[in-house]
Write a protein that binds this DNA or RNA. Structure first.
Length: 888
RNA sequence: GCGCGAUUAGCUCAGCGGUAGAGCACUUGCUUCACACGCAAGGGGUCGCUGGUUCAAACCCAGCAUCGCGCACCA
């Protein structure tokens, strides 16, 4: 064995070293020719220009844990990494950079802009990949994919062409969510509702035929009144019924607009009168369609008002126009009042500004394979964990709406549609029918052969239109044959609709197969106050700094340990500290082993009861860990590992064998102790490796457990208890636990009398009858663990007055410190214990005295209660006896 | 408005019918020859509220309250 390492675990060098070695040995490469059972995950591709945040850390740690465990289970693992071109996000970043140079994308032109984005990506892209490697991710980096790789692009465009041919993709003028900031259409999923404090304006329009009669209208958006082409009331509303068919005066630009009756109007809301602006509100648009109202679009794409709004407003931003419109109404005596008002306003997820419902010419997709996709999850063919997300998914699938897939951006997959130059005007007017349009356009992977006569569609596809193909478009044969469908997908629930649902539909539509079998949804990481982590709030920690300070293994362990299944995660740096501390604990436990030198293989490995106990705990832990993996309960996995190693191996086993390691100890016992340590460390490192890969790999090497890499080891086939007689195991465990109980009680007694640190205390043990014949063997361990100078066993010991004692599973233990003990305090302590026993006893007795309990409870429960009753009676008698003696 | 989830020790959470748990924090004592990123001992909870089911309820059921998250065109 190598030199003893230093007592502080320094992760930086160790992690760097193993990252390098794993990569050099190509340990992460998936071999499609391998006969092993395949296991695969595709990474949720981060933005190519992104940087690591805690969500990535959690998400990818979980994937790495799954991948490494799968390798140890004997699987051939493909964890496929890659990045996403992230249309809007990336374009925004580059545009911002251009603005700093006093340029715009329009100024430099499309070709130059796209080259610029690519250059930017060359420079800054891939940082996140390095950061994932830094975390220890065991992805097959040789198969890294990017949504702008030429073959991937071909798949994306091919899917567009195919869906177009099937008639599922169509172009049309529809109400879409328009982001005036980025000046592109958005899908419904990219709109987030935000509670917004605003004002409800009450204004009045004069009825044209009845001068002096006004209708009062409540609106949150007076700035759109210039686009009003009607006023609507509920057809049955007695207040206004007579007005239907008449007209009112729109104050500016002044016009006569009709009053119409429509059942959509809620008479209870506001005044029961709605101003109808078909160009700027989804519901109003529909009302307009029903009544053949004209559409008056008063907004420019950037959110400023246009000439139709009148000279006062033209060029003004929509937010400035709101107050100005209200002032103007006020000046005209048409504003009745303002009321503070709170409502939900759709905001652009990316840009953060309110979206504008806007009529525009866009491409839409009628989703394919909707029923099959809904059914795949409902039937359990694809399993969601936590399961409750299946309901959310089902609900969305039932109410699925066509997807607006075109974006008015330059960065992305350009729509593979060309329009004949001579009909371009007609086409862009949006006036052509679907059949007419189809008869004119060229749709295909390649441009038309006479490109000079054609104009390509300017738009690109929504980024998710490429992401939804990720599980299979990243794989070519023979990899796809072997590793698709993938096994597990790990992602956050906030992209269930954006990504997961769409991948299921794409998988079924284009491969005829589900894309993955299990989806594990992580919790969303929040700060300690429950807020989402975000750059703008400044509550998002610098992950590289965390990796520096706590080590990749510490961060991984700490995060997993607090990742409950199915709810959000309150992030607290203390948790990472626990992870780091655990790594150090492990490090030092191994150092302790190394300080003992070689384990001589001679001598019969006669295991102590403490060794058997810890081996049994190890077996329990291994089984529980296997179960926890099957249920994707990652916090439980780390909890089990922590508890076993710290609580059982270090706190009890290592302490118990120190007696065997002292100089002059029996060499056979010493050898047995060392062998047991090695046996446990070996199996423990295998169990811990997926969670803490670097330190375990390092320790595996230092301990000389063989093989080139721990990560290539397989889970041990047998149990740690194999070869041991179950009866002996059971008996040993009872003994070991009795010793532990006695140790705890003895320590407690010492602490109670302020002797916690005193190692010169002597105890007397009056052994319980079943322990009498073996307890002598355990006295040295007992003495060591309790920190006693000597422990005398005396079955006939008569407790003198003033000597404190305690009941233990080993018997009664006394601490003869005559004169030193505060008798009153000791009486109080025993009285407290007695009170507790009394309480328990009366509870058990009242239960057993209840005829309906005895009648109806299962026999084993009754039996258990009888046993406890006996126990308590016995304890009570002993405690009373102690009190008696104290009183003299 | 509809749906989902949460409510257990100061904090973060586990437990989901039969003796209330963990980690951190807290208190006390420890330079014990692996570890102070440590060791030992200890204090701390009428398990949100009200009913119901049951021999037995943190746990199952119903209702309520509070918080969070989705979904929804109430201007």
């Amino acid at each position: 064995m190598a030199d003893t390492p230093s007592k502080a675990y320094a992760p930086a060098d160790v992690e760097r070293k193993w990252r390098r070695r794993w990569l050099d040995a190509q340990n992460f490469r998936a071999d499609p020719a391998s006969p092993r059972e395949p296991y695969s995950i595709v990474i949720p591709p981060p933005n190519v220009t992104g940087v690591l945040h805690l969500g990535h850390v959690l998400n990818n740690t979980i994937q790495d844990v799954l991948a490494r465990r799968a390798r140890m289970r004997g699987c051939e693992v493909l964890w496929l990494p890659g990045t996403d071109h992230a249309g809007i996000a990336t374009q925004n970043v580059v545009e911002r950079e251009l603005r700093r140079e006093g340029l715009t994308r329009q100024a430099i032109g499309r070709g130059a802009f796209v080259r610029r984005v690519e250059a930017w990506r060359e420079k800054h892209g891939g940082i996140i990949i390095e950061q994932l490697q830094r975390l220890g991710c065991s992805c097959d980096w040789s198969r890294e994919r990017y949504t702008q790789d030429p073959p991937y692009v071909a798949d994306v465009l091919g899917v567009f062409v195919e869906l177009y041919r099937q008639g599922l993709i169509y172009r049309g003028v529809r109400m879409v969510n328009w982001c005036p900031q980025t000046q592109t259409a958005l899908s419904d999923e990219e709109v987030v509702m935000k509670t917004t404090r605003g004002t409800l304006y009450f204004m009045r329009y004069e009825v044209i035929d009845s001068p002096g009669r006004f209708v009062e209208i409540a609106t949150t958006r007076p700035e759109t009144l210039m686009g009003d082409t009607a006023v609507a009331v509920h057809p049955a509303d007695p207040r206004y019924r007579d007005l239907i068919g008449k007209s009112v005066r729109r104050p500016f630009p002044e016009a006569s607009i009709p009053v119409i009756g429509d059942a959509h109007i809620d008479p209870e809301f506001g005044t029961g009168v709605l101003k109808v602006t078909p160009a700027h509100d989804r519901a109003d648009f529909e009302i307009g369609q029903r009544h053949g109202l004209p559409i008056r679009d008063i907004l420019n794409p950037d959110g400023t008002l246009n000439d139709l709004a009148g000279p006062d407003f033209s060029g003004l931003d929509r937010s400035a126009a709101r107050e100005k419109a209200a002032e103007k109404l006020e000046a005209m005596g048409l504003l009745v009042r303002r009321e503070p008002y709170e409502n939900e306003v759709g905001h652009s997820e990316r840009a953060g500004v309110p979206v504008e419902p806007r009529l525009s010419l866009q491409w839409f997709l009628r989703y394919p394979a909707v029923d099959a996709a809904a059914n795949a999850v409902a039937s359990g063919h694809i399993r969601f964990r936590p399961e409750r997300w299946t309901k959310t998914y089902a609900h969305w699938m039932e109410n699925i709406q066509d997807w607006c897939i075109s974006r008015q951006l330059w960065w992305g997959h350009r729509i593979p549609v060309w329009y004949p130059r001579d009909r371009f005007q007609d086409i862009q007017s949006g006036a052509l029918s679907d059949e007419e349009l189809r008869s004119l356009v060229h749709v295909g992977l390649a441009p038309p052969s006479d490109p000079e006569n054609w104009i390509q569609d300017e738009d690109v596809l929504d980024t998710w239109f490429s992401s939804w193909l990720w599980p299979f478009a990243t794989m070519e044969e023979p990899v796809r044959e072997r590793f698709y469908p993938t096994t597990d997908l790990v992602t956050a629930p906030d992209i269930l609709f954006f990504w997961v649902a769409r991948m299921i539909m794409a998988g079924l539509a284009f491969t005829g197969q589900i894309p993955f079998r299990n989806v594990f949804f992580t919790g969303l990481i929040r700060d300690s106050k429950g807020r989402k982590l975000s750059k703008s709030l400044g509550n998002s920690p610098d992950c590289l700094d965390l990796l520096d300070r706590y080590g990749a293994d510490g961060v991984r362990f700490g995060l997993l340990r607090i990742a409950p299944t199915g709810s959000d995660i309150r992030y607290d740096e203390d948790r990472l500290r626990e992870g780091r501390n655990f790594a150090t604990k492990l490090w030092n436990a191994v150092r302790f082993r190394l300080l003992q030198g070689e384990a001589s293989s001679s001598g019969s490995p006669c295991l102590s009861i403490h060794a058997i106990e810890v081996l049994a705990r190890l077996e329990e832990m291994e089984q529980a860990v296997t179960q926890a993996y099957a249920e994707y309960r990652f916090n439980e996995i780390t909890g089990l590992l922590y508890e076993f190693f710290w609580g059982h191996y270090c706190d009890w086993f290592l302490e118990s064998i120190k007696e065997n390691l002292q100089t002059g100890a029996d060499p056979a016992r010493r050898a047995a102790a060392l062998q047991t340590m090695d046996r446990i460390l070996l199996r423990f490192l295998i169990q811990l490796h997926p969670v803490m890969p670097h330190i375990t790999e390092e320790l595996w090497e230092i301990l000389g457990f063989g093989g080139e890499f721990l990560m290539q080891e397989q889970l041990p086939a047998g149990s740690p208890l194999d070869g041991l007689d179950p009866a002996i195991v059971a008996d040993s465990r009872i003994r070991a636990q009795a010793v532990q109980d006695a140790v705890r009680k003895a320590r407690n007694m010492k602490a109670t009398y302020g002797l916690g640190a005193n190692r010169n205390v002597g105890f007397v043990l009056r052994p319980a009858a079943p322990c009498a014949d073996w307890v002598q063997d355990e006295i040295p361990v007992l003495r060591l663990l309790a920190g006693a100078a000597q422990i005398e066993t005396d079955a006939a010991y008569r407790q003198p007055r003033g000597v404190p004692g305690a009941l233990t599973e080993l018997g009664e233990i006394f601490m003869p410190l005559e004169g030193l003990v505060d008798i009153a305090a000791e009486k109080e302590r025993i009285a407290r214990e007695l009170a507790q026993v009394d309480q328990e006893l009366s509870r058990v007795e009242s239960r057993l005295g209840n005829p309906s309990f005895v009648d109806r409870a299962p026999a084993e429960v009754i039996e258990e209660n009888r046993r406890r009753q006996d126990d308590f009676i016995q304890k009570r008698r002993q405690l009373l006896e102690m009190l008696d003696i104290l009183e003299g």
